[in-house]
């Protein structure tokens, strides 16, 4: 399990095989993600990726990566959420705990919410 965790850690914000990119915050910082893994942890992501009907996905040309804008979140906090989705182990610092809680709530990541 630990080995597995170490292996999957390498995929956090890794462009390899990524099928979604998030443009986060005012600076539109790019974060790469994998739909399948995100859907496992977050109900919201699951809903978003489940049908291919939405604007984010359906307007894609073939092979083009899905782009999702998230203007209202601090990139630092987003990265914490992202790595939680992959490793299920939260790295929480006190300065971001409330922001993290808010996102966990919005994105329907129950466990992370509880940890906060």
């Amino acid at each position: 399990m630990r080995q597995h965790n170490n292996l999957i850690k390498n995929f956090v914000n890794n462009k390899d095989m990524a099928d979604v990119v998030f443009l986060v915050g005012k600076e539109q910082t790019r974060f790469y993600g994998h739909k399948l893994i995100l859907s496992i942890t977050s109900l919201m992501f699951k809903g978003m990726f489940f049908t291919c009907q939405w604007k984010e996905i359906s307007h894609n040309k073939e092979d083009e990566i899905t782009k999702i804008r998230i203007p209202d979140v601090d990139p630092k906090v987003f990265l914490a959420v992202l790595s939680y989705c992959y490793q299920q182990k939260p790295k929480i610092t006190l300065d971001m705990v409330f922001d993290l809680y808010k996102i966990a709530d919005k994105y329907l990541i129950e466990k992370l919410k509880k940890v906060c």
């Binding site: 809903g47 978003m48 009907q53 939405w54 919005k106």
Partner: peptide, 15 residues
């Protein structure tokens, strides 16, 4: 016409 809608936006509105 769902393809004209952004999931992120509607989700945020509902939220």
């Amino acid at each position: 016409n769902a393809s004209s809608l952004s999931f992120e936006e509607i989700y945020w509105t509902c939220y």
